[in-house]
Amino acid sequence: MSTPSISRSHTPVPEEQTRHLPRILCLHGGGTTAEIFRLQSRALIKHLPAFRLVFADGPFFCDPGPGVIPVYQDCAPFRRWLRWLPEHAPIDNEAAVEEVKYAIETCKSEDEGDGPWVGLLGFSQGAKLASSLLYDQQILGERGLPVETEYKFAVLLAGRHPLVSLGPYSKSAACVSAGDISEGHVFDGESPHVLRIPTIHVHGLTDPGLDKHRKMMRQYHDAKTVTVLEWDGAHRVPIKTADLEPIVKEIYRVAREQGVNV
C-alpha cells in the first residue's frame, strides 16, 4: 500500500470516521496542553489520515512554556508531565509515576476510538516521556512481566536526554527519577538502558537543544532501530509540507514494518 500523498489541499478525516483506525497517543511539551499540541500538530494530523491521533493532558499545572504566550494564552491552565524547574512542587517518585500513568490511562479510556494503540508521538518533554514509556514496556517484556501496552513505535520531536525511570528496572545513574528535576541531569557514560523498539527522531537544526536531542538518541536508543530526520527549524512542531513529507513517509514505513495495518 502506498503512503497517502501530501498536499496543501489534503483535508483532515472527520472525527467520526477515525474511530476504527490504529491510534497514536500524543504527549505535549512542558507548559502547554493537549489542545495546544493538537493545534501545533494540525498539519501533521492532516497528513496521517490512516491513524487516529489522541492527545493527552499532563497531570501537573505549571506556568506557560517558551513561546506559548501570547498565541495560546486562552488555553490555560498549562500543564507538564515532569519537573524541570526548581519551583515545580516536589513529589516522590512513585507518586509521580502514578500521576503520569493515571493521566494517560484516563485519556485512553475516555477516547471514543476502538482501534489498537500502536504508537506514541511526543514533543519536547512529551518526547522524553514517550521514549521512557516505550522503554518501560520493553524492559517489562524482557523480564517476562505483565505488560499493559503494545506500542510498536514512537515519533520523538525534539526529545532531550535523559530517559526517565518509570519503574524499578530502570533505576540507575543513567536515568532521572520521575519525581526529580530532569534539567541539568548529567550522565556521560554508556547507558545500560537502550530502547530497541523503533523510534523516529525529528530534530530542528536551529533548535537550541539540538545537542541534547542528539545525545538522547545516541545514549538511549539502539542505532539499528533509529530513524533520524533533521529539518531546518527551531523548537517547534514542523508545519510546512516540505518538512512534513519525510516525517510522514517514515511513520508509515515504520508502522507497516511493525505490522500495523495502514
Rank of each mutant, 00 (worst) to 15 (best):
S131T: 04
E245Y: 01
S177K: 12
G189L: 12
R80I: 10
F123R: 07
P86S: 12
P4F: 08
I200P: 02
S2D: 14
I181W: 09
D207R: 06
T33G: 05
R52P: 05
F187W: 08
C75P: 00
H88F: 11
F60Y: 14
A255Y: 10
A103E: 03
F78N: 01
R83K: 13
P208H: 13
G126V: 05
L156V: 12
I239M: 13
T206W: 11
L39P: 00
P12Q: 05
I181L: 10
G204P: 04
Y169S: 07
V176L: 05
P66E: 11
C26Q: 06
C175E: 02
I91H: 00
I69C: 02
L82I: 14
P168I: 04
L129R: 08
G58R: 05
R236G: 11
G167Y: 00
S2F: 09
A34D: 14
S7P: 00
I24P: 09
Y169E: 11
A56T: 14
I200K: 03
A223C: 06
T199R: 00
A154S: 14
V237H: 01
R83D: 03
E245G: 00
G30Y: 07
A43S: 13
T149I: 00
F55V: 07
L163Y: 02
L163H: 03
G65M: 06
K215Q: 13
S109A: 15
A89S: 12
L129F: 06
F51T: 00
L39Q: 06
L44S: 02
K171T: 08
P246C: 03
K152G: 09
